[in-house]
Design a protein around this nucleic acid. Structure first.
Ligand code: MN
Ligand code: MN
Ligand code: MN
Ligand code: MN
Lengths: 217, 217
DNA sequence: TAAAAAATTTAGACTTATCTAAATTATGAA
DNA sequence: TTCATAATTTAGATAAGTCTAAATTTTTTA
């Protein structure tokens, strides 16, 4: 088994790898709230364990065994988030930090039974896909509503920013997963958007918000 | 917050305190599978934090704040065990090690909602009482069936030994919580007992087993 | 293409939690 | 009551994970 710190590093590298082939020391340090020197130390350990490909100064990528571990942590994270929202009735903005701890509970049988107990959910409360017990999942094909044009429409299916403040704002505006919206107007000046809900109500959202609200067409 | 190691020490001291006013260094070392010297180191830290009363060579006892923390860990342990058995359908001999990890999940709100979700269970799968969110619980008034006499009867309500081997043995003999039994005979020679189940079936159990099976009259 | 700036690594230190071996204190049997 | 033994503590190491400050390498910019 790997330590809690190792698991968090692998998960961070996995998430950062979505944007870039190789992940830099500073990116990892920023995402884990540590110092670059601490990251370098850990990278050596992970490389020794053959969980990452690492050459000095060149950044890192996960090996396939490192990726497997990362995906498993993410599976646990997302299943626990689903549990907290669906069974314990937490709000979607409250569950991330708890899941950050729970994702390190080691038993594979526990997580598989939890998955079964909840009837194999496909997405976590933020719309992220939940890997199955073999680590397989469909990469979500969502895109920010900021990429849409006037008259386009679709269903809110994910968020890019998981911060409490953003999620609470969305909740207040009823911009929650599953809601259908269409674009009424895009303001030239600041790229803010006026969108219409199914109940015809119109909401004005900033470019920033539009960049972080994901939609399935 | 306290570290995982600190929490485990407090819990161990709590359990050992049931038999004796003061708990010895060696007792703690045995229960946590560490060395006496490691225990001494930790006792100093816990004493500095005012979680235990400690004077060199004299053993330790919990302060009220130490006890509060210990009871809270035990509450979490027993609620997670109950969850694993009642919701995820694990057997009673499978859940202890998982709960040993889960008891360290920190959120109090999480555990209170879990408690509510399961409708405030009073006992864990081994018959141990579950403290409420204020740390209150009734000390169980169970006694080993080895203390009974011929013709006495009662309901199996707990086990003293939580090892897989004992629990699996009991399961196989149908000696599970809630079953009513009565004492048919006590063998002079080795203090083994012949007990009768509700269905009139008779089972012969060793003195050792009888010492570890608890009953409510 | 040579500085300057930025990124990364190394050196040395600290904390937590362990350990072994040695020293000290307590205990209980003669 | 004394001394051998058992229990406990201290001394000195080690490993994981982190930090600051200094050194090194890479990248950018002029
Ligand atoms: Mn999350
Ligand atoms: Mn985590
Ligand atoms: Mn248990
Ligand atoms: Mn534990």
């Amino acid at each position: 088994m790997n330590t809690l710190a190792e698991e968090n590093y692998l998960k961070s590298i996995y998430h950062l790898s979505i944007n870039a082939e190789n992940v830099s020391t500073n990116q990892i340090a920023a995402s884990l709230n540590t110092k670059a020197s601490s990251v370098t130390d850990m990278l050596k350990k992970l490389a020794d364990k053959a969980l990452i490909n690492y050459t000095k100064y060149q950044g890192v990528s996960l090996t396939s065994s490192g990726e497997k571990i990362a995906v498993n942590i993410i599976r646990k994270h997302r299943l626990w988030e689903y549990f907290l929202v669906e069974k314990l009735k937490f709000k979607w903005d409250q569950v991330h930090d708890m899941a950050e701890e729970m994702e390190h509970i080691s038993s594979a049988e526990l997580i598989d039974r939890l998955d079964e107990f909840m009837d194999y959910p496909q997405h976590d409360p933020h719309g992220e896909p939940i890997p199955d017990c073999n680590g397989r999942f469909k990469a979500s094909e969502l895109k920010p509503i900021s990429t849409l044009s006037v008259h386009d429409s679709g269903t809110i299916s994910g968020v890019r920013d998981h911060s409490s403040s953003f999620l609470q704002y969305l909740e207040k505006q009823q911009l929650t997963l599953g809601k259908k919206i269409s674009i009424m107007e895009i303001v030239e000046f600041d790229h803010s958007m006026i969108i219409q809900m199914e109940n015809k109500k119109e909401i004005h959202i900033s470019r920033e918000a539009a960049n972080n609200l994901l939609i399935a067409l």
